[in-house]
Amino acid sequence: MEFVLPAFAGIITTFALIKRVPVFDIFITGAREGFATLYKIAPTILGLVFAVSLLRSSGAIEVICRAAEPLAELLGFPKEIVPMALLRPVSGGGSTALLMSVFEDCGPDSFAGRVASVLAGSSETTFYAIAMYYGCVGVKKVRHTLIAAIAADLTAVIMSVVFVRLYFG
């Protein structure tokens, strides 16, 4: 699978050569537009990284986790994964670090390890995606995007437990 990226780039270039497109000139124009996009999303990214690192260092996550653990156990959700599930929507790097610690503590092929894997594979860093995509065009009223995205995250949390139970018995 490591070859997908170069193959993708190769196909694009070869196809353009066959169609006699001035490949490199157009590449430069496009890459310049990329910089303009980056300029537009930079403040959004900075603001989010700031807020999320405050959240992680304040100890708030641990407090919420301790409160949520009894509820998680009641629902049959492995309590080792609660911190990861909570951090997943706001921080990709943070939740990957927590995924690795679940693997270390319980093993990747344990029930908790499998649920954590499925959750990581079926959810996204929702708030980053929303803030970045809307931030780059200056849209302020996002309407029902947030509700739909939170519904997706919750569904992924519930379904990862359900499907791991069903699939691995």
């Binding site: 694009i12 196809f15 497109v21 590449f27 124009t29 496009g30 890459a31 990329g34 990214i45």
Partner: peptide, 26 residues
């Protein structure tokens, strides 16, 4: 860490915006 993240994204965004432009034109 925000600047670090932006620098990582900068390369990816510019490279693939360029390739996207080629794919579009062809």
């Amino acid at each position: 860490s925000a600047v670090e993240l932006l620098m990582t994204m900068a390369g990816v965004i510019c490279l693939w915006s360029g390739l996207m432009k080629i794919a579009e034109q062809s």
